[in-house]
């Protein structure tokens, strides 16, 4: 008996080793389901094996039957009634009364199978836990001896699901980053073109201002000469009066000329003022 038990154990270990090797290579949830479909039946007997894992906004439900294996990935919790009980109580259970759970179609067994539902909540912490349950019957008998391999398989599953979830999250973040990078590049191009445009505008404005300044300078020089001309007349007349003129001369000859020259000076100044004002208004426009 002991010999055959050891033999059975050795065979199971071999099966477990194949299962582990196969699971390590899985990259997607579908890969995991396929691995369980092929390998799980060599570790222990079951009618239905179900494992539920939760991370972030994702709820994963792996269901394995003799007909196949299926991984549901969804945003709603979608726990079965017995899983709710396991979650709440947190202790392993083995139910023989299955009616109250209103289990789905694949859990239906013939009367004489005497179905048993085993369940565990395997958790490291709040965020990292797996609900696992096994439906067995007389033709697919599950015993306490099988719990070791079930827990080993479940631990492996939990690690693998976490790994795939992290990969997926990384992919999503990478995609987000790539999008961000594209946006940054687009904005950079836009900014560069805006800067180029600004440079052109600044260059043309600077030239415009330099031109205007030069023009104003020329005008101011011209204006200064126009103003100076009647002024030199006044100065000339004054010095003539000092040296040579009699009071009769001053009254008859010089005063009218001084008056005319003063008026010319006034005109020239008014012209300068109105010209400068116009130029200033043009500059502001």
């Amino acid at each position: 008996m002991l010999v055959s038990e050891n033999q059975a154990l050795r065979i199971t270990y071999e099966a477990y080793s194949r299962f582990s090797n196969s699971l390590i290579r899985c990259r997607t949830f579908d890969d995991v389901a396929a691995c369980f479909k092929v390998n799980l039946k060599y570790l222990f007997n079951f009618h239905v094996f179900r494992a539920s894992y939760h991370r972030g906004s994702y709820y994963l439900h792996l269901t394995v039957t003799s007909g196949g294996a299926n991984m549901q990935v969804q945003h709603e919790a979608g726990y079965l009634a017995h899983e709710e009980v396991l979650l709440e109580k947190g202790i392993p259970a083995c139910w023989k009364e299955l009616e109250p759970f209103l289990l789905p179609e694949e859990y239906k067994l013939p009367e004489d199978e005497q179905g048993e539902l085993w369940g565990w909540l395997i958790r490291n912490d709040e965020k990292h836990q797996v609900l696992v349950s096994v439906l067995s019957g007389t033709s697919k008998l599950f015993t306490k001896k099988d719990i070791t391999f079930l827990k080993l398989a479940t631990e492996n599953l939990k690690t693998k699901l976490l790994e795939i979830c992290l990969f997926n999250e990384l992919d999503e973040k990478n995609k987000y980053l790539k999008d961000a990078l594209v946006t940054i590049h687009e904005k950079n191009t836009e900014i560069t073109s805006i800067i180029e445009q600004q440079k052109e505008i600044i260059a043309s404005r600077t030239k415009e201002i330099a031109d205007k300044n030069e023009k104003l300078l020329q005008i101011s020089v011209l204006n200064a000469h126009d103003v100076r001309e009647p002024l030199t007349r006044i100065m000339g007349l004054m010095s003539l009066m000092e040296h040579y003129a009699s009071s009769d001369d001053i009254k008859d000859k010089f005063l009218p000329k001084l008056k005319a020259s003063s008026e010319d000076l006034d005109k020239a100044l008014q012209h300068v003022i109105s010209k400068a004002t116009t130029d200033l208004l043009k500059l502001k426009a």
Partner: peptide
């Protein structure tokens, strides 16, 4: 400007 000529011619005359 006639006045300018007047100034210079008066100066020369003197």
């Amino acid at each position: 400007m006639e006045i300018s000529n007047f100034i210079i011619s008066t100066m020369i005359e003197n």
